[in-house]
Amino acid sequence: MLVFRFLNEKYAIRALREKRLRISRIEELNDEFEFIGLALKGRKDRKALREIRSHLHQKSGIICMSERWSNPLLWAHYADNLRGIALAFEIAPTRFHQVKYVSKRPKLLDLGHRTLDGITPADIKQLMLTKFDAWAYEEERRGFFELREGETISGGTHFFEPFSDQMALRQVIVGPRCSVKRREISEALGDLSDIVESFRARAAFQGFSIVRNRNENIWK
């Protein structure tokens, strides 16, 4: 299946040149409820769950994708107000998991436990894939990756996952307001330029969506 990663122009071009995506660290994500969405009454339990999250933060990270690229909110929020780029990847569905959106925070009893001591790795995975339904517009799929050797960039440590058979680049979709040229995309793709499709997007004429611009002459 195809899923889509939204980036600003600078980081999209870098991803194409380096043939890899940056792995997001768990405690740096933009939702404070990530991985700690359980409704817990006790301070001790809340602290323990945060410690579990902190441990995961040190060992693993995620790459977030969306199941659709046509939603203008995704372009506005994650592609620099439509000035960015969406990268389409063919993924193994077993490698990237569908996020479940809920209106209420789950309780321990919903997981079949009375105390936090009984929580299992399967429960942790379930929490990793549970988000408040206000985020449902993202239609997110998540891949979990071990943090291997990091790189120091701009004073911080960053981790990357290379393109692969399980995360294979298939399309480059240039946003309606993006200034990047067709030649720049081709140069960044290098050896992939012959097998990866690239095109420019535009606002739909009839509905509230972002669609492919069929006028190829618009994008030089």
Rank of each mutant, 00 (worst) to 15 (best):
R141M: 10
A76L: 11
V99N: 01
W75E: 04
I85M: 12
Q58E: 14
E151H: 14
R68V: 11
W75T: 07
F145Q: 06
L109S: 00
A88L: 09
N71G: 06
W75P: 08
E140Q: 08
R68F: 11
F145H: 08
G118M: 05
T94C: 05
D110P: 00
G155P: 00
L56G: 07
L116E: 02
G156S: 11
P106R: 05
K59S: 10
Q98R: 14
I119V: 03
R50D: 04
F132N: 01
W69Q: 13
A136C: 09
Q58K: 12
G84I: 11
E146M: 10
I85Q: 15
E151P: 04
Y78T: 06
T94S: 06
A86E: 13
G143C: 11
D133C: 07
F96N: 01
R53C: 01
S60C: 13
R53E: 07
H57A: 04
G61L: 06
P72N: 12
L73V: 09
G155L: 03
S154M: 14
R83G: 11
I153G: 09
Y137H: 14
P72E: 13
S66H: 09
I52F: 03
Q126W: 08
I62C: 14
L116W: 08
P121W: 03
L108S: 06
E146C: 07
T94R: 04
W69V: 13
S103I: 03
Y101S: 01
R50Y: 02
L127W: 01
G156P: 03
L56E: 04
